[in-house]
Nucleic acid binder design. Structure first.
Length: 354
DNA sequence: AAGTCGGGGAT
DNA sequence: ATCCCAGACTT
């Protein structure tokens, strides 16, 4: 049975799978799990596991490192301790707590999910059911159903792709992480430990995050290095995933402070980016008075753009502001959700003016 | 299938 | 400066 799956999955695309029988897979699972129980990090969502904590952590951890998530998770669980409290919260408060974490649709989707959950008679358990919730995709549905309900669903995230690509010296060139994830799904499912699906999944991700690193993997302390083909050659060479080039973008923005009020722009609720969040307004969208004075310029990257942002100081013709623009009292600036870097710049500039 | 969404830590 | 992170959604 397993052999059949392996043969079909690997075919001739990965290096030899000879030797992989049911016994070897079992051994792999045991080595991995023993290592996990012995060496895993103590993370807050693992201490007193709950469905809610699992869901929140899985949302926050999408494309985001554990170390980045930690302070956000603690604050979140304190402010929104369960689905019910979260469901009853104002969206602006939800966004405020997510401020700086990025991918803000995650916060909105998590909020929606909570509202849906509290209306249900019973909590869904299967992967297919979780897949229906907003913001829950192939990865998160497998993670939640396996970790919270021990459903036999294998997760495939960046860590898992890297581990399996190295185990079998996967020579395929993937066009992106999406393709790699999809093509790896059958193989990872055949390696799933059916006795402990949740811990098996977490163990793989823990291994990828702490041992099977993208650069300089720690093969010497890896619990499954005997099974790993790349370990004998160049582990860093796997997997091979094509990355797209970032395009250069230049944006000019306005810092205008008048009578202890700062002009800000709030992205519309249905905006594709930063929906509901405040930023410094763009220079081009305003009618200004006099010549703008360059305060500073900063470079950052979001998604597939390299952005150079130029911040100007100028006076604004404030009798007829474009929609979305408003003067925010600096006393209340802490209350509004704002994109992370802009928050830092604004605080820096305000303190400099005093 | 390809493009888009944030931000930061590590190298 | 580049990579990549417990991915999902829209086009």
């Amino acid at each position: 049975m397993l052999e059949k799956i392996l043969k079909k999955t690997i075919h001739n695309q990965l290096e030899s799978l000879s030797g992989w029988d049911e016994q070897k897979v079992k051994k792999f699972q045991q080595n991995l799990l023993s290592w996990y129980y012995d060496q895993r990090r103590r993370l807050p969502w693992r201490e007193k596991p709950s469905l809610y904590g699992t869901v929140v952590s899985e949302f926050m951890l999408q494309q985001t490192r554990v170390s980045t998530v930690l302070p956000y998770f603690e604050r979140w669980m304190k402010e929104f301790p369960d689905f019910k409290v979260l469901a009853g919260a104002d969206e602006s408060d939800v966004l405020k707590l997510w401020e700086g974490l990025g991918y803000y649709s995650r916060a909105r989707n998590l909020h929606k999910l909570a509202k849906q959950i509290v209306e249900l008679e019973s909590i869904p358990q299967t992967r297919a059911e979780w897949l229906e919730f907003p913001g829950v995709g192939p990865y998160a549905s497998a993670a939640i159903s396996s970790i919270a309900f021990e459903e036999p669903e294998a997760v495939v995230d960046g860590n898992v792709v890297r581990i399996f690509a190295r185990l079998f010296k996967d020579q395929r060139e993937y066009k992106g992480t999406a393709e790699a994830t999809k093509k790896m799904a059958t193989l990872t499912q055949s390696f799933l430990n059916l006795d402990n699906p949740g811990d098996h999944n977490q163990a793989l991700m823990e291994l990828g995050a702490t041992v099977c690193l993208p650069k300089k993997p720690l093969c010497l302390i890896c619990p499954v290095s005997e099974c790993c083909l790349a370990r004998l050659s160049e582990p860093e060479a796997y997997p091979t995933i094509k990355r797209r080039v970032k395009r250069q973008v230049i944006v000019s923005r306005v810092f205008s402070l008048s009578n202890r009020k700062l002009l800000l722009y709030r992205h519309p609720e249905d905006a594709p980016r930063l929906a509901g969040l405040y930023e410094l307004p763009k220079l081009e969208s305003l009618v200004i008075r006099g010549r703008p004075r360059l305060l500073f310029s900063r470079a950052r990257a979001i998604s597939n753009e390299k952005i150079k942002e130029m911040i100007y100081n100028t006076d604004i013709a404030d009798n007829d502001l474009p929609s979305g623009h408003s003067w925010v009292n600096v006393c209340n600036i802490d209350e509004v959700p704002m994109s992370g870097p802009h928050r830092a710049w604004v605080m820096e500039l305000i303190s400099k003016q005093d």
